[in-house]
Every structure is written in C-alpha cells, then in structure tokens.
Design a protein around this nucleic acid. Sequence first.
DNA 1: ATAGGGTTAG
Length: 822
Amino acid sequence: MARQALPLIDNSYYTIIIRLNSITASLSQAQQAHAHILKTGLSNHTYITTKLLSLYANRLHFSDARLVLDSIPEPDVFSFSTLISACSKFHHFGNALSLFCRMLSRGIFPDNFVIPSALKACAGLSALHTGQQVHGLASISGFASDSFVQSSLVQLYIKCGKIGDAHQVFDRMDHPNVVSWSAIVAGYARQGYIDKAKKLFDEMRGSGVEPNPVSWNGMIAGFNHSGFRSEAVAMLQKMHVQGFKPDGTSISSVLPAVGDLEDLEMGLQIHGYVIKHGLASDKCVISALVDTYGKCGCTLEMSQVFDEMTQIDLGSCNALVAGLSRNGLVDDALRVFRQFESQDMELNVVSWTSVISCCAQNGKDVEALELFREMQVAGVKPNSVTIPCLLPACANIAALMLGKAAHCFSLRRGISCDVYVGSALIDMYAKCGRIGDAWQCFDRMPTRNLVCWNAIMGGYAMHGKAKEAMELFHTMQKSGQKPDFITFTCVLSACSQNGLTEEGWYYFNSMSQLHGIEARVEHYACMITLLSRAGKLEEAYHMIREMPSKPDACVWGALLSSCRVHNNLSLGEVAAKELFELEPNNPGNYVLLSNIYATKGMWKEVDRVRDMMKMLGLRKNPGCSWIEVKNKVYTLLAGDKSHPQMTQIIERLTILSWEMKKSGYFPNTDFVLQDVEEQDKEQILCGHSEKLAIGFGLLNTRPGSPLRVIKNLRICGDCHAVIKFISNFEGREIFVRDTNRFHHFKDGGCLIATLDAKGLSHWTVCAEHTMESKQNYCRVNLKMSRLTSTKEKSKTPLFPVLQTIRIVMDGELEMLKTRVSF
DNA sequence: ATAGGGTTAG
C-alpha cells in the first residue's frame, strides 16, 4: 500500500511531526497531540497516525493504540507492524497474534519486520503450531532467508523444545552472527545436550565469531537449567580464566547451581567476587545469594545478606521465605511472610507459592489451604507451580473436592499436561482413594517423565494393586524410561502388600544387578515388611542385621507390627527397644509392645510399658477396653447426654465389641484407644480412634456403603484386626491408606480399593500428622471430614473454591455437632 | 522499528 503523498506545504503537518517526535514520556502530551491531529484533520495521514499509535503502544496504552489503528482508513503493513512489535515487546503476545491475523485477513502482506514480531509472540506463548504456520508464511513470502526472520525462528523452536528444527533453520543461515550462535548454543545447553552445546561453542569460535559475555551466560544458565550444575560452575570458572569478566547475570545464573551442590566454599568465593566487583546492588545477584546460603544451610549468612540489602526487593524476600522454610524454620518463614504482607508489598505468585509450599511440606495442610484462599482473595493467580504445591495438602487431608477443583483449574489454564501438575494430580487422586481417576490423569498425559511413572506406580502400590504396578514397571522400561530408587520403592511396596515374596526378591536383587541402583533403607523396609508379613520374622531380623546402613524406624516398625500380628514376643522386644530409641515419642510403638504382652497375659509388663509412657508424658492408654471407649464417649458428650444418637453409638460399639470377642479376635487384649488432646473435642470425636470413627461412619452411612480410613500413622495390629473384623461383619469395604508408609500399611484383611462414586456420603477419617521432624514424632492430630454427596458437589463452584470449602468444612463440623452434639 | 543471557516457588 503506497503511503499518501506528503502535502507540499502544510505547516501543521510538519509541526505535528516535530511535536510527535519530541514527545518523550508523558502520556498527556500524546493525548494532546492526538486531539490536535483529530482537530486539524491530519488523521488521514498514515505516517502521522502511525507515529501516534507508536506513542500510545510504547506507553502500554494498547487500547488507545488500537483505536488509532482502527481509525486509519487504509492502514499499511507499517502501521500494523508498529503495534504488533510493541505488543510482542511488552509480552502482550495474544494481542500481537490477533492483530497479525487481522492484518492478514485485510489482505495486507507481511514484511520481514512484522514476521519476527509475530514469531516472537508465538515463542512467548509456546504456540508451536501457529509458529509453524508463520514459518510457512515466511517461506512463501520469500523471507525465509532473512536473517532476522531466521533468528526469530531459531528462538521459536528453542522455546518450544524443538531443538532439531531450530538447528535446521540455523544451518541454513549464511553467516550466523553472535546473537544466533548464542541462542542455539544456549538452546542445546538448556535441553541438557551439554556435549553438543560445548561442541557448538567451539565451532562458533572456529567460524570466527567470538563469544561475548551473553554467549557465556547463556551456556551457564542453560547448564543450570537442565540440571548440569557442576558444568555450570565449571563454565563460570572457564569464563573467568579466559579473561571474560563474569557480570551480574553470570553470577545469578550460576548461584542456583552452587546452592544445589551445597558448595558453600564456592558460594563464599562468589560472594567475595560480588562484593569486590560491586555487583551487590544487583537484585538478582542478592536474591540468588540469599537462596544459595539458604540451600547451604547457612541461615545466619542468609539473613545477613538480606539485611544488608539497601533496597527491599521482592525476589530476595521470596528467597528468604523459601530459605527459612527449607531449613525447617517454618514459623519464622510464616512470620516473615506476614511481615512483608503487612508492609504492603506487592506479593506475587512466587511469594504465595513459597509460603503455601512451606506449609504443605511441614504438615500444615490446613494452613496451606487457608493461604491458598488468601492468595485468591489477594487477586494473585495460581500457576503451574502453585498447583503441585497445593495438591499434596489436599491429598493429606483427603480434600478430594478441592483437589478436583484444582484439577479443573489446571484444565482451564491448560497446565494439566505439565509433568509436575500431572504427577501431583495422580498422587492426589490415589491418596484420596480414586485410583481410577489417577490412572486417567496418567493416561492422558502427552509427555511423561520419571516422576509421573513413579506417581502412578506408587498409587497402584498404595491401593494394593501389585499386578498393575508391576506391569507399569515393565511398560515404563519398554518406553525407554529408566527407573530410579523411588520406582523400586513403589514396586517393592506393592509386592510387600500382596505377599509376593518371590517377585519382591527378584526386584530387590535386580535393582543393583541390572540397574546399578544401591538398595536404600526404604527398600530394606519393604523387604522386611514382605518377609515379616509372611511370618518369616527370623529371616527379616537377619536381613536387618545384615543391612549395610543403619536401620531406621520404618524398618524396625515393620518388624514390630508383624511381631504384634504373629505375637512374637522375643523379636518384638528387640524391635521395640530399638524403636524406643529412635522414636521415643511415638506412642504406637509402646502400644504394639504392650499388646503383645497383653496377649500373653503378661499384665505386669503391660503396666511397665504404661509407666514408661506416663513418664514420657505420652497420653496413651494401651490395652484399654471398649468399656473405656464408651466412657470416653460419655465424657465427650457430657454436655448433651440426651443426644439422639448417643445411645445408638454406644449400642453399636458394644455390639461390635461383643461380636469381636465372640469371634475370637483378641483373646486376651482389648482395643487400643488412641489418645488425643482433651481440648480438641471435635478432633477427639472425629478421629479419636479408628474404631470410633468407623463406629460413627457405620452409624451415619447407609448399610453396605464403603467406608474409608485414611491414616498417616502406623496402623498397629489391633486396629488392623478391628478393620478386618468390621469389614467381614458388616459386609462393608473399608479402605485404608497409610500415607507415605506403604510398607506399614494394610494387613491381610484390609481391603484397599476404589471408592464408589454413586454420590453416597462417605466418611473420611484423616489422621493429620506425618512430620517426623528429623528424629521425633510430632503431636498427632486426628481429623475427620466428610465427602459431600454428588448433589452437594454440583452446588459447589470450582475456583476460587477455598472459601466455599472452608464453609463446607465448618458446616461439616456443625453437622457433626448436631448429630452427636458435643 | 525488529534479535541472544539472570534470581526467588515444584
């Protein structure tokens, strides 16, 4: 489209151009000029209007720019290009592409300036397919050999992970300049092709193009990104040796690698370099330093770097929160976070995700969900990192509905294919008893990494589906994915739950022989469980003795649990003695031992264990009876003895107890009552013991409907027997999960299977705890929540959901209170 | 008028 001829003499025309050119910052100047242009009728001049459009666009006033563009009677490629490139420049990629399409649809032919802008937008959106179409367009338009176009194509393909395609374009370039060289080299480094990257780096020099600091930094960042940490550090050293001065970017690219390597020495050296070269004013360098010290466990140095910072920077604040959380200083992390919040800092998605992840990783599941709600209220949008941080919290408290909402959110945001999101979803569904949904998530993933495979295998193992887990193990290998030690933990735990001794041994041995993976404590724990469940207690004990590393609580716990099942006193005492050392505050161990004594009628010893617990301040009552359970219920309900269900509950418990005794369960001992804090009445009521919870569940669900018990605790022998008995007696399926401790989980009789989804109200008994903070068990909180019926579900909005969920949860408590008011 | 490198959350 030819531009309009300039008027010969038109003062206002030149005046306005001079004026437009002189506008530097102020938007109001642009608006004034705009008004003037409209007034003088100069808006027909494409050159002027395009200039104006550029003013608006480069001040991020896209809507005004768009208005101007639309007002141009015959816009040319230059007008469109101006706006499209501004959109791309400021990351408004969607706008850029829609404008590009509009341009094409108006029959305006693209030029070699607009195509790179469009390609940049495609790269920004990782829109490979659209990018390929633009590539095609560039080819038929004869711009495929334009070096800017080629360079943009290289960028696009690298961004979309198509390094091969990027290289093809690159190869066709006549004389790639340092920019293109750097891009392709960084692309290879980022994808983890370190040898290829190094080779190209040398080739670049060979072809007479000298790398500049950007080229070096690209390599360092690329290596770091693909997990080649030592390579990244080595690259920095090489850069330094060869006389290139590492700048702030080099330092902030290499520091994460230094932190991951926990190479404090290197960190200190780099810190020295930073001070010496005046890089301490660089925000990224500071936040990376905070992060590095945090990763090296130097919280003092970390705080020092943070405090010395002259200007507060969000990145460093986030790094500080993460560093505190990483070093177990959860309360400090939360306090610091709240402090930043109260200072009116513009917290971003990283800030919120850090603190959510901090809670979720430290047993504060409910807090994590509450923070997620606050995040939504604050108007910060969760992303593909937030969701996998949140999902474990959902899984731990079996908040299936919220987990599903997070799933819907991921689908809508198009992040459900992300390997982290997908793996977290698989895990969440599996832990909420929905192995079918977990499988669907897995099945629909377009790309899977090891984490995904492990998640689904772990899920099947958790559900006692050993056959499926083993099949997946082989499918995975066929697909070329190599197993790691977690894979073997999943497979072995699947075997151990199903008594597959032979298979267990096979996988255990093949681990080091075929895959070069040394057996860790958790693998031994699986084998110990497998052997001891099969009654081969001596063999299990022998294996513990032969273990290369020090057996941990899981190992001894597996033995003790089975000793309780088989009532093997001598080995039980050995295991208990070890456990009392390793986990002096875990009441379950004392209970298991005292149960063995009780079975043998050794009441003196039972008393001795009781005394030990009393001395340690462990509020547990080993070997207490159903009578005591009943008394407990009375005490709890003291405020309202006339509750309509009270009598029924007591009756039910009495009948069950009687029937159990009659059927020969527990000839000598009675049930274990899980003791909890008096002040948390609803918690006591909800999860005082599996037996109570199941009792309530039996009472409040339709006969025959499945129940599930979700526990994060080691389930001791008696509880197993209760569950086993009730499932037979009531003809109900009772699903039990013991998070993260597959090998302690499930005795022969406990079924684990999928819950039905017929909209029945299920009771979910959640024991929330898990944190074994290094050595000791923390306090155990038991919780109960109810999964809503299908009807209720449909009323619940998806996202943002937490507010609703909270209300539902509180509502549940209300409901509980009215049912069994306390 | 267009182009390559950075921190913090999994």
